[in-house]
């Protein structure tokens, strides 16, 4: 028989991970709900997941690639910017969803117990599904421009996804915890994400910053996007140092986010 002991304070323990595993079906159901509900009562449905990044790519290609003539490391600009956008949108939409997830599920949090971590994790997974749908465009673009990724390049993609996942959930957990008490996050975040888009080499290559490009390396998404281009389009050899910085940086970020989240978690229902 399972025994539960409830005590005033509980710090992070291995039991939490076990519990998370016990509740894996709920994780599935939350993800399923978010996917199911998102495109309900829309006319074109799931096509929105493709439509948005596609139109963004077209507009960026016309203005930044065509008119502003932003360099693209010798690759056609549409495909260059699309690789960036693909990862960027996964990161930014996962981040903003994660930080809002506690607020939007307020009514459930105050009425039922389950490991709260499930909510942010499920919102990132939902965005991951969008990522895969949007990849279809990338595949057609690669066919159109005749790019064949190297096998080693494909193998590195899961690692890049992992980094993006950890970056968005690490920062997202931290923001979600703050958001429970200070709703400022809701207003600050969209602005912050917009600024960050320009600090990340999405629409321009990192090489544009010349010898200062190492500063950009502090941004884990720079490592991800840079490496994705290197792997898929062969713009440059894969920079393992960069990947390592991003990987360890985001790992620390994720541990930090989880720590803050777990520390404040128990009081969510009281102050939300």
């Amino acid at each position: 028989m399972e025994t539960t002991v409830i005590r005033p304070r509980k710090t992070f323990s291995l039991k939490d991970i076990k519990e998370l595993w016990q509740y894996r079906e709920l994780l599935y159901f939350f993800t399923w709900r978010d996917l199911k509900v998102r495109y309900k009562q829309t006319f074109i449905g799931v096509a929105w997941a493709i439509f948005q990044p596609f139109i963004t790519m077209v507009v960026f290609s016309i203005f930044f690639g065509g008119l502003a003539k932003i360099p693209s490391d010798g690759v056609p600009y549409p495909i260059f910017v699309y690789v960036g956008l693909l990862f960027w949108q996964f990161f930014s939409s996962a981040l903003s969803d994660t930080s809002m997830t506690l607020i939007s599920n307020q009514s459930i949090i105050t009425k039922v117990y389950f490991p709260r971590l499930i909510l942010p994790v499920s919102s990132v997974i939902t965005k991951l599904v969008d990522f895969f749908i949007a990849t279809l465009i990338l595949i057609s673009l690669m066919f159109y421009y005749g790019y064949m990724p190297h096998l080693s390049g494909l193998l590195i993609l899961p690692l890049l996804l992992l980094i993006t996942f950890m970056a968005s959930i690490g920062l997202g957990l931290f923001l979600a915890s703050i958001n429970v008490k200070y709703r400022d996050v809701r207003y600050a975040l969209p602005f912050f994400i917009q600024i960050l888009l320009f600090l990340t080499p999405v629409i321009y290559p990192a090489s544009i910053a010349g010898k200062y490009s190492f500063i950009l390396a502090l941004n884990p998404m720079m490592g991800v996007i840079q490496s994705a281009r290197a792997a898929l389009l062969g713009t440059a050899p894969i920079n393992w140092l960069l990947i390592n910085i991003s990987l360890w940086g985001t790992l620390v970020l994720m541990i930090f986010g989880t720590y803050v989240f777990k520390k404040t978690e128990r009081y969510f229902a009281d102050i939300i």
């Binding site: 409830i6 005590r7 005033p8 105050t110 009425k111």
Partner: peptide, 10 residues
Amino acid sequence: ITPPTEGEIV
């Protein structure tokens, strides 16, 4: 849903 301030429950 919310933790107690003191005491224990089994």
